[in-house]
Design a protein around this nucleic acid. Structure first.
Length: 810
RNA sequence: GGGCGGUUAGCUCAGCUGGGAGAGCGCCUGCCUUACACGCAGGUGGCCGCAGGUUCGAGUCCUGCACCGCCCACCA
């Protein structure tokens, strides 16, 4: 057995072996109980980042643990087509050649995206494998593959037939670059230096004017009202009168609306329903018209001929010049505020009105809310549960249409008379009038529309496949906080709507990984860390361990120390295994615990197993790493291995057999977090029947569950500490205890600095503390009896130890 | 503005249902003890953010405050 452990070659070899031997495979015909994770499909163009690595480390640990417990585990791999994101990447590539998608045309562009994906896409599954993710890679699915697309169209038709879908003119976030509506969740907000201008709107009766403040003077041309707060004393007499919009000289009403903030600007708001979301709401409330002056490209449209084709800056200049000439421009001041930009391309968002498809949420969300409230789906940590419920309660109708080309085109056809035909397959003729002149709706569906179906569309829905019967509903889902509204809630309500059951029972919201300096990880900041670099330096097992260790907080800093700790752990186990294997040649593993330290380590292994079960069950991954670290370093290596080493060196057959058996158990406990090093060692043990990955999770054995050994070891520990610090040997009761003491402390080699006085001082302090506690009547009467008893025991022990040191006061 | 989380050793963080302030790294000391120097043994180091409260007892529970972070949000 090599003295040095080299993770790189070992890890890739096992990844290939496990997959080739079919040990990741999940089969519908397998009668064992199923355990299923709904794992977020990465973008088809994506690269592995720390978020993926963390998700994989956590989900895979759970899957591996359950696999050892005898479950038929399904860990489904796949990709998301990621609509706008993917389209944008291909558009960027096109732009490098000086072309835009409009130059190539829709059909050719979509073909281009497919080509591009064949060349650059689908690489991330290789990286998933490098993380050791035990996915059934044969089952790879894509949200745009044929069967999945059928599911998406079926979902749309289903919603249409239930009357949940409708078309409506609504104000949307319009990206002038992508020429598409974006959801609120696809926006970024950036701070900009703007200008706030104060403009007078003359009253129609000539009796004066009202001054409004605006950051977007070009939209003055689309104003249809002036609004003030109903309680605003300054404008009490104004409501109901009429004002004149500058430049276009249109008479508009002054209305009262509570959405106006009296403290902002002059307290009077110009109402522009066509280009502002709040104004749109105010306009609908007051039945105002909804003209638009900005076109889809962000420039002025033809509505006002004088400014047609201008940029908004040019139009603003023209409007303000007009106002200035007439003394209507009161003042302009610098104004710093945040604006919405497209998160993909950074273009300033133009709110404008367009015809979109909407999905009514009131009926859909009701059963999902019931399921959440009843705890049929539980979020972890629980603080996210309330957030999930509240955000679902508040969910507005869902804008499902996008004006891009890459995605699932709406299964909607129009005839020249304006009739709609909604069908899964292209219809021959209009469903209403029978004409064959049909034009398909050019829009595609929101990418989350298909993601919502992931837990069951990947299993063959809408067909009732054996996979679907077997693996739905699943067990857990793991994702980032900001995805809850986009994905989690939608999977839950669509699962309930289409299959009548929630798709999973537990949702693990993992922490956000920050850069080591606490800043957000991002390519633009240069703070990104490539998980593959970490793997190259520390190994996959160490990376998985490190990620699990830091996963306990809401926002967690990446820590190289945690990876280094994982690496030390792997090396430590490797060396512990060497100690045993080098001495136990030709011995078969058997549980033949004869001596104290053997019964003790078996009890410790069982205790660790119970602790791990509890931690896995609570999804407390950090706790699991702590248990493993303590088990390996403190218990297994520093005490058990040291204690049993003389007997191993002497080739004591019982000691060797038991050591092998104990090592087997240790490796099994380790496997979910560090599968590679544990499998590598496992493969070198004698008489292997199966790979560790599919070997049983250890069962507890009550034979060595009692506390006697623990107490004896505790006595040895105390004696060792006192000896090392003071050179005084405390009397030990049994032969076993003395033997372990000698093996672990190696008295002949210990150089004692001999500060007996300091040790006496320390024990006196402890005794004083314990005596103080026990003298406290409140403590003795009200504290739990076992706590008081423990305190008494400690006091006794300290006194004994003090006596052993030959303290004159005893 | 709303929600969530954080504030404990020089650094990164544990501390679950209130009863001895902990780990890893760093630093200091001693050890190449035939598994491991990527190691072993020992040590230094802390008004547990601040102020109140509950309790015999608070890092732990309650209230308030301060600072930091993340997510969300329509202030023209």
């Amino acid at each position: 057995m090599e003295p040095r452990y080299d993770p790189q070659s070992v890890e890739t070899r096992w990844q290939e072996t496990w997959e080739a031997e079919g040990l990741y495979a999940a089969e519908a015909a397998d009668p064992r109980p199923a355990y299923v994770v709904a794992f977020p499909p990465p973008n088809v163009t994506g690269e592995l980042h720390m978020g993926h690595a963390l998700q994989l480390a956590l989900a895979d640990a759970l899957i591996r643990w359950k696999r050892m417990q005898g479950y038929n585990c399904l860990f489904q791999p796949g990709y998301d087509h990621a609509g706008i994101s993917t389209q944008y990447q291909v558009e960027k590539a096109l732009e490098a050649e000086g072309r835009r998608r409009q130059d190539v045309g829709r059909e050719a562009f979509v073909e281009l995206v497919w080509d591009w994906l064949r060349r650059y896409g689908r690489t991330i599954m290789t990286q998933f494998r490098r993380m050791g993710a035990s996915m059934d890679y044969r089952r790879e699915r894509f949200t745009m593959d044929e069967g999945y697309t059928r599911a998406v169209l079926r979902f749309f038709v289903h919603l249409w037939e239930k009357g949940y879908l409708y078309r409506d003119h609504r104000i949307v976030n319009w990206c002038p670059y992508h020429l598409s509506a974006l959801s609120d969740l696809e926006l970024d907000h950036v701070e900009v230096e703007d200008e706030l201008v104060y403009v007078r709107y003359p009253l129609a009766d000539g009796s004066g004017h009202v001054t409004i403040a605006t950051a977007r003077p070009a939209t003055i041309l689309a104003d249809v009202a002036v609004a003030v707060h109903p309680d605003d004393e300054r404008y009490r007499g104004l409501v109901g009168r009429r004002a004149v919009v500058p430049f276009v000289e249109r008479e508009v009403p002054v209305v009262a609306d509570e959405r106006v903030d009296p403290a902002f600007g002059t307290g009077a708001l110009k109402v522009t329903p066509g280009h502002d979301p709040v104004d749109f709401e105010i306009g609908r409330t007051h039945g105002l018209p909804e003209p638009m002056v900005v076109g889809p490209d962000g420039r002025m449209n033809g509505a006002v001929p004088e400014v047609a084709g201008m940029t908004q800056e040019e139009a603003a200049a023209a409007v303000l010049a007009w106002c200035e000439e007439r003394g209507l421009l009161e003042r302009r001041e610098p104004y710093r505020h945040t604006i919405a930009v497209c998160e993909r391309c950074g273009s300033r968002i133009e709110p404008l009105i367009s015809l979109q498809w909407w999905c009514r949420m009131d009926e859909l969300k009701r059963p999902a809310l019931e399921a959440l409230r009843a705890g049929r789906v539980r979020y972890h940590p629980p603080s996210q549960h309330r957030f999930a419920i509240e955000s679902l309660e508040a969910a507005p109708d869902w804008n499902v249409s996008r004006q891009i080309w890459w995605g699932h085109q709406l299964p909607v056809w129009y005839c020249p008379d304006g009739h709609l035909t909604v069908a899964e397959r292209e219809p021959e003729a209009c469903a209403e009038c029978g004409t064959r002149e049909l034009v398909r709706d050019p829009d595609v569906l929101d990418t989350w529309f298909s993601s919502a179906l992931w837990p069951f569309a990947t299993l063959g829905w809408p067909e009732r496949t054996p996979d679907l019967e077997r693996f739905y509903p699943g067990d857990f889902n793991i994702t980032a906080r900001e995805i809850i509204r986009l994905w989690e809630n939608r999977m839950i309500f669509s699962g309930l709507e289409l299959l009548g059951e929630v798709p999973f029972r537990d949702v693990i919201i993992h922490s956000t990984v920050l850069a080591p300096d606490g800043r957000r990880m991002s390519k633009s900041l240069g703070t990104g860390v490539d998980p593959l670099d970490v793997i190259a330096e520390y190994g996959t097992d160490a990376t998985r361990y490190g990620l699990a260790k830091i996963s306990s907080q809401q926002d967690t800093r990446l820590s190289y120390e945690a990876f280094a700790e994982g690496r030390s752990l792997a090396i430590k186990i490797w060396n512990a295994a060497r100690l045993i294997l080098l001495n136990a040649e030709g011995v078969r593993p058997a549980l033949a615990p004869r001596d104290l330290e053997e019964r003790w380590i078996l009890a410790r292994l069982d205790a660790a197993r119970a602790g791990l079960e509890e931690a896995w069950g609570r999804f407390d991954f950090a706790e699991a790493t702590r248990i493993l670290y303590r088990l390996v370093f403190d218990d297994f290596c520093d005490w058990y291995a040291e204690a049993v080493k003389p007997r191993l060196s002497a080739r004591d057959p019982d000691a060797c057999a038991t050591a092998l058996a104990a090592l087997e158990r240790l490796l099994a406990l380790l496997h979910p977090v560090m599968p590679h090093v544990s499998e590598e060692i496992w493969s070198r043990l004698p008489e292997r029947k199966a790979r560790l990955i599919v070997s049983p999770w250890p069962e507890p054995d009550p034979r060595w569950a009692d506390a006697e050994e623990a107490e004896a070891l505790e006595r040895v520990r105390d004696a060792a500490v006192i000896f090392r610090r003071s050179g005084v040997r405390v009397e030990l009761g049994s032969e076993d205890e003395r033997r372990i003491f000698d093996a672990v402390v190696k008295p002949q080699r210990v150089r004692v600095d001999g500060d007996r006085e300091a040790e006496i001082e320390r024990l006196r302090r402890e005794i004083a503390r314990a005596e103080g506690m026990l003298a406290n009547e409140g403590f003795v009467q009200k504290a739990p009896p076992e706590v008081v008893a423990a305190e008494r025991e400690k006091l006794e022990r300290y006194r004994r130890e003090l006596a052993a040191l030959g303290d004159p006061s005893c």
